[in-house]
Design a protein around this nucleic acid. Structure first.
Lengths: 137, 137
DNA sequence: CCTTGACTTAGAGCGCACTCTAACCTGTAT
DNA sequence: ATACAGGTTAGAGTGCGCTCTAAGTCAAGG
């Protein structure tokens, strides 16, 4: 597989693939004739994994750390595991934070919706703007 | 409240507060004598809200859009609401993605843990190397 | 033969969101 | 009086993660 096809299949651009190779996130693979990179399909497992780390907010520094350990073979498994566990914990914390933000967002949206209903004269009950905790719609 | 205190209370730095003012995220408040910004405590509601938008991944461009609407008063409420709804939906989608990544991460970690148990001779049951889904090596 | 398109490299450029520097000013405490 | 802690400005610099440019090589098709 040449770089263009890997780009299509991995969702990275060829630019990014070369960049990742430069910095050590992707291996320096063997070249076919005319010096072109020749990737094995198994590289896709790695790019997918990297994609997940990235999606979950791991900085390149962290991925690099993991990649370096990986290159050192099975002896590094415990440390890799530790690294992933720490990352997972951070991600979990972040998800919790997002969910808390989401509920505030929902409240606020509900507030706007309520205001809008009043403006349109749907306010038969004349309460105070109603203490509507969460839940939109 | 002067800029230093707002910085402490909001969690932003004074640099960032001035930056936000420059770009229009924070209002140009009145100055006391000697030209120093004098903030009302109510600004904290706004900085907190901005913080939540930022935490949930809204780019400054988006916050700016919201801020501009806000300055136009109640007439913009419907549009603000729409903006928040769109953002909320993106955040929800992102959270879902994170959770899917988390489960993959958990699998992988479990794989490492299993490998580690075997290595330490806790493998009484001598099955095939166990279906180590993600594992690595 | 010649064009086309995919590849190669080193290195420059970009967009984002700050973060800091330099030079200056002001109010308060000793 | 003087030092010091804070504030002010315009504008430069930083770190991240790409993204692109320029100039060149190569293989296949018309």
């Amino acid at each position: 597989m040449k770089i263009g096809e890997l780009a299509k299949r991995s969702g990275l651009t060829a630019y990014t693939i070369r960049y990742y190779e430069r910095i050590g996130l992707l291996p320096r693979v063997s070249r076919g004739r005319s010096n072109q990179r020749d990737y094995d399909a198994s590289i896709l497992n790695w790019t997918e994994f990297l994609h997940r780390l990235k999606t979950t907010g791991m900085p390149i520094r962290g991925m690099l750390q993991y990649a370096k350990l990986r290159e050192r073979g099975p002896a590094s498994e415990m440390e890799r595991c530790r690294l992933l566990e720490e990352h997972r914990d951070r991600v979990r914390a972040h998800v919790a934070e997002l969910q808390s933000c989401l509920s505030v967002l929902d409240e606020k949206i509900a507030g706007y919706a309520a205001a809008h209903r009043m403006e349109n004269g749907h306010d038969r009950t004349r309460n105070k703007p109603a203490r509507r905790k969460a839940a939109a719609r």
